[in-house]
Write a protein that binds this DNA or RNA. Structure first.
Lengths: 185, 185
DNA sequence: GCTTACCTACCTACTAGTAGGTATATTTGC
DNA sequence: GCAAATATACCTACTAGTAGGTAGGTAAGC
């Protein structure tokens, strides 16, 4: 893995566990074993580093939705939920949750990328829900986009709230999402 | 209002809009018109200030649930949701959302108070849901505590996500929560 | 010989926090 | 009733440490 990719990986871990305003170039430097100044060779500023990190999330998210297009809606939904599972195992929150609370302190380039990312996530999940409802695997009363909002906020909020209550609460939220979609009578 | 209360009010605004690690004693100093050092007269450290702020939220939240005990479950639920409405109008997120993303950077005293606060919120809403179901105003399939988790994460996450998508999405989330509870057929 | 990928050494601005002083109330002791 | 002591609520001036960022140098490799 290139140094650039290493920096992005470490930045990702730091932002998702500590938050954007709590991590520093010194943290990356310590973790990676290169000097603070050398990070500026790869990313001109913290804002630039943040922007590139969000862009990499956009790419991964687009890939996830595209690559899973041949799968069933249930399989696609499970792949989507698995992102949040990975965050939970790493004691992290999701990037939308982390950066939305810090939004007022971010520059325009990061804000705009975040808007793009959240729109991709929302539309991607909405499509899965539409397809699942069309073929009668998912049952829900709301508009698909509304149901997507509810599921995303359950997962995003579940990662955050369960840090304070119990890991089991996150599991319970996931279980309920699936139960309500699949076993509604 | 006393200086101490003023500091707490300003800290509240700063944490809910910018986040814990983005606000400083200098921000409070500028806003309030007293010197940085004088803040330490009222609160020995940033951690102490944070702890006291959470404690004030605990008191207000306890009061909200207690004072509304004579009202109907629907009225009590609307009062609960109104907290999130107030945050939304001020372009803020909720304190649980804000401080849970920064949790790893907080001291034990703040962490513990946050656990206390989230437990009070969760239990308070659970009680409202139990009461509403018992008297047949609310309809939901999940366990009351699970339904409370879902509603809290919808509101908490809705405040955050709607910063990136649209204010209307927050309204839609609220509408759906109430519709699903009250008009389920 | 130029680019890549680092380095050392530094800068300015800001962070939370401290030391010690001051003016004004409030309380206490005689 | 009045003076001494104490508490309150600030202040100026400072500290050590950290933030993001920059200037300029260097060694390796195509």
């Amino acid at each position: 893995m290139s140094t650039r990719e290493n920096i992005l990986t470490i930045t990702d871990e730091l932002i998702l566990s500590k938050g954007y305003n709590a991590f520093s170039f010194a943290d990356i430097s310590n973790e990676l074993g290169i000097k603070k100044a050398s990070i500026h060779y790869h990313f001109s500023s913290k804002e630039e580093l943040g922007k590139c990190l969000i862009k990499s999330h956009i790419d991964k998210t687009r890939a996830l939705f595209n690559d899973s297009e041949t799968l069933t809606p249930t399989e696609r939904l499970l792949l989507f939920i698995d992102i949040y599972n990975q965050r939970k195992s790493a004691h992290q929150v999701c990037i939308v949750g982390s950066l939305s609370t810090d939004l007022m302190t971010l520059g325009d380039s990061m804000k705009n990328e975040m808007k793009e990312l959240s729109s991709i996530i929302l539309n991607g999940l909405t499509d899965i829900l539409i397809e699942g409802k069309r073929e009668n695997t998912f049952r829900f009363a709301d508009q698909p986009r509304t149901k997507a909002l509810l599921i995303i906020t359950n997962l995003l909020g579940g990662l955050q709230l369960s840090r304070l209550t119990s890991d089991a609460d996150f599991e319970e939220i996931k279980r309920s999402i699936l139960d309500n979609l699949l076993n509604n009578e």
